[in-house]
């Protein structure tokens, strides 16, 4: 099987305006159809890396998304193809109603009124929030907010879904629903988190970051069962959790695309 690369990053360096160096030479290749978890301790540069995927931050080095270099001329196209979901849904949902939020992306893309309405109802159905269009995001439960936040990018029909801390603050049921939603969404996915069981469940490949660099990259089982590696980079599995080698047949996207 051969795939086109969805994300190509070469030698990416980034320092924040206050001088804090966040990325010290990151190389990463993500192929279309993959589900990749990026894990690492706080301050490893995970979220900074994520903001480079659609050109919100621009560091030194090369970033290509579906072959397009991330630069001003391509931003419109890249932001349509990359659906970036932020950690706090209160940041993602800024409009007076859920409908307006989900319609924000499609309207910016210049779709017609009918196309926008269609895209919104499709996206809300995918995340199971039909009928809440007129609600204010303030009145949703936290789990509903998280799912609404995903809907706001699904309505743009993205080819790459990028999620920052998708499972944080979710209760077990909301977490289960969110996980199922991710598995139903069969596009390339990048998850940034330190919730290792969540990664185990949703990704085939794990990238470990620490100190602004990628320190390990491999399949989910071999990384998560390498206790020494995890420990060295400030990560650990929850007490009593042991990754088991599982048959990767159910949720693999690659096989469907052929």
């Amino acid at each position: 099987m051969h795939h086109r690369p969805a994300v190509e990053i070469k030698g990416l360096h980034y320092a924040y305006p206050d001088g804090t160096v966040a990325l010290r030479g990151v190389d990463l290749l993500v192929e279309e159809g993959e589900a990749v978890g990026i894990v690492g301790p706080n301050g490893a540069g995970k979220s900074t890396l994520l903001l480079h995927l659609n050109g919100i931050l621009a560091g030194r080095g090369e970033v290509r998304i579906f072959g397009l270099p991330v630069e001003k001329a391509n931003l419109r196209e890249i932001r349509r193809r990359v659906g970036l979901v932020f950690q706090d849904p209160d940041d993602q949902l800024f409009s007076p109603t859920v409908f307006d939020d989900v319609a924000f992306g499609p309207l910016n893309m210049g779709l017609s009124r009918e196309e926008v309405a269609e895209a919104v109802s499709c996206a809300l159905e995918l995340v199971g929030l039909e009928g809440l269009e007129k609600r204010s995001a303030y009145h949703l439960s936290y789990g509903q907010k998280k799912r609404a936040a995903i809907a706001t990018v699904l309505s743009m029909n993205p080819d790459l879904l990028v999620l920052d801390e998708p499972s944080s603050n979710l209760d077990p049921r909301a977490r289960r629903e969110f996980s199922e939603l991710l598995q139903r969404t069969r596009i390339t996915k990048i998850l940034v988190t330190h919730d290792l069981p969540f990664v185990f469940e949703n990704c085939e490949r794990v990238v470990v970051m620490d100190g602004g660099r990628i320190v390990a990259d491999g399949d989910v089982f071999s990384i998560l069962s390498n206790e020494e590696l995890l420990k060295k980079h400030g990560l650990e599995l929850p007490y009593g959790f042991y990754p088991m080698h599982r048959e990767m047949d159910g949720h693999r996207v690659e096989e469907d695309r052929g």
Binding site: V82, F86, G105, N108, V153
Partner: peptide, 22 residues
């Protein structure tokens, strides 16, 4: 800080200065 994050979330969905609503 929230303002900055909200703005990033707007940019990420193709915000270009104009507010479009139905």
């Amino acid at each position: 800080e929230r303002g900055e994050r909200v703005y990033a979330a707007m940019l990420a969905r193709g915000y270009g200065g104009g507010m479009h609503t139905l």
